[in-house]
Simulated assay, not measured.
Amino acid sequence: MEKKLTGSTVVVTGGTGVLGSCFCRALADNGAKVAILGRSLDKAENLATGINNAGGHAIGISVDVCDKAGLENAKEVILNAFGAIDILINGAGGNHPEGVTADEYFDSEKRNSGVKDFFELGLEGMDHVFRLNYMGTFLPVQVFAAEMIGRRGCSIINISSVSAFLPLTKVPAYSGAKAAISNLTQWLSVYFAKEGIRVNAIMPGFFLTDQNRSLLTEPDGSLTARGHKIIGQTPMGRFGDPEDLISTLLWLCDPASAFVTGTVIPVDGGFTAFNGV
């Protein structure tokens, strides 16, 4: 599928993250003009510079995906720089410490001991996770899909998580928010079907990112107890590499998947297929 995206304009939210930056480079390598959206302007522009120096086409833009006015401004910059928008990849997301329990199971003996259980989860943290993941996908679709109406062959790709399919212990906010992303993906796929806008999601398994690295690995690189548990539940026996997502991403962007919409595709080393026995 090399260079199949030549001439296409792709918007990537969360484009400066570990996974997002890999997406941006791969899309540019395949001929796309890439708009890199992230909170840090320096990171977005540095990534764009690297892509441009390698012969690609990219611009970096600082924006908060929960700020609709900011997204509208970013859209105008993209339209002026690259023209019509063909593909939106919603890569922004994350968790918050106040949406995480300390233990996997409730222990009444620890109640009121200072150990954060379900009853101690803060509304601020829960709200942050849902806004970032759900509204941070909903709003970019609302802004950028408006430019796809009346133009066939456009595509939206959301990022779900295996925690949407199999809720992970300790992270009720993140699991719930990602489940909402999977549901929104299916809803949008039906809503936009008559316009020829395809909407799909990738469901990554466990990939080491800046947000989860300290939870899954020790400072020396060895696995934490949670890391061991995850690898033990992953038949392929390793964490994913960002590059493992690229073939699925490019396929969903490409006309080769023209009849594929409303899917949530796991890329997880077999995690969701394994029942532990």
Rank of each mutant, 00 (worst) to 15 (best):
P172D: 03
G91D: 07
A145K: 12
E120F: 10
V171P: 06
K116R: 15
D86T: 09
S8A: 13
S62M: 08
T224S: 13
N90W: 07
F144A: 04
H228V: 12
C154P: 08
P97M: 06
A32K: 04
T272N: 01
L245D: 03
Y191L: 12
S40K: 08
E243K: 15
D117H: 13
V267G: 01
V171F: 01
A258N: 14
L249V: 01
I157H: 08
V141F: 06
D244I: 05
G227E: 04
P255N: 12
F259K: 10
A84M: 14
L5P: 08
S161K: 00
Q211V: 10
N95V: 11
F118S: 14
A225P: 04
S108C: 12
I51Y: 03
S8V: 11
F192E: 04
E195C: 04
E45D: 11
I36C: 12
T224H: 12
I181W: 00
G153M: 04
Y105G: 07
G20P: 05
V77A: 13
P172I: 04
F82R: 03
V100D: 11
G227I: 10
G99D: 03
I59G: 06
I78G: 06
T248D: 01
F119D: 09
V277Y: 11
E98L: 15
G136F: 07
